[in-house]
Design a protein around this nucleic acid. Structure first.
Lengths: 146, 146
DNA sequence: GTATACTCTACTATTATGATAGAGATTATA
DNA sequence: TATAATCTCTATCATAATAGTAGAGTATAC
């Protein structure tokens, strides 16, 4: 799994919205300023998140963005996968990995699968409600412990 | 963690060398053919692995590549980190992450740290001896189980 | 009707990735 | 010693991903 700037910004933005859940819409400008993200870049990211069903928007005066669902219904893993793609360490599809034609491939594939599972277990067990609570209470978020 | 083609090829190549550990050197051509890697690309990769201290070479006739240490002394994680860089899901260094200046950052940082630890636990517990044995015995490699 | 705020398409710059090319250096051995 | 086999090194190139920027357009509250 690799988190890009875009992904990082998306996560911060959804957390911002989660912290204001239930209130009036928040403008792109406000969020961009708070998280120090270029406004025009954040515009693109929010349009993407809207297409993904994570946020909704209101145009015009008193417009802005809102979460499309409750923070408790948005898993961290969902957002990561949507913005930055699959969590697997290597693309196991396509011609290079279309089958277990040689034994080397299979040996490593099992390992990538295990890394994938361990990662998923962490990011899919955390919701934005957890993250928002963690911020409000100023305590580290609880993650799946090995 | 993201494994590139270069990384994938490097791992396969070291496994190939591990399977022939103790024998005479293996040529780039042989390895490239067996793993279906472009020869010139594999040349670059092997030079890199040599600089990393993983392999050594013999020039001239009857030349080729050998492992620089026993397969049991080469961890999977070492090679991955050397070829494809840090295992962390996000670059937590540099100006963007130079300090815990805002609370959002810290919330996520804990999570990336946990993903990092879970991943490391898997890839650092496997050596190329384990992988070679796994190939020879035709059984999946044992990985750290959650 | 106008200011505010989202929407949409297109464009650009930089870097990483995945190679390829070709001349050079070293070594075994006939 | 000649030569074939093999690694070594520097440079170059093509494509895609990433990280933005630009600007005209649309909707809404007041």
């Amino acid at each position: 799994m690799r988190i890009t700037y875009k992904g990082d910004y998306a996560l911060k933005t959804i957390l911002d919205l989660a912290l204001h859940y239930g209130n009036s819409p928040i403008t792109i400008n406000d969020m961009a300023r708070r998280a120090d993200i270029p406004t025009k870049f954040l515009e693109q990211i929010l349009l993407d998140l809207k297409r993904g069903g994570f946020v909704e928007s209101r145009r015009g005066k008193i417009g802005g963005y809102l979460l499309a669902k409750a923070p408790s219904q948005i898993k961290l893993g969902e957002v990561i996968r949507f913005v930055d793609g699959p969590v697997e360490p290597i693309a196991c599809t396509g011609k290079k990995y279309s089958g277990c034609n040689d034994v080397y491939r299979c040996v490593f594939r099992k390992i990538w699968q295990d890394v994938f599972l361990a990662t998923s277990k962490i990011i899919d067990s955390i919701t934005f409600e957890d993250l928002a609570k963690s911020v409000k209470d100023k305590v580290p978020v609880y993650t799946y412990q090995i």
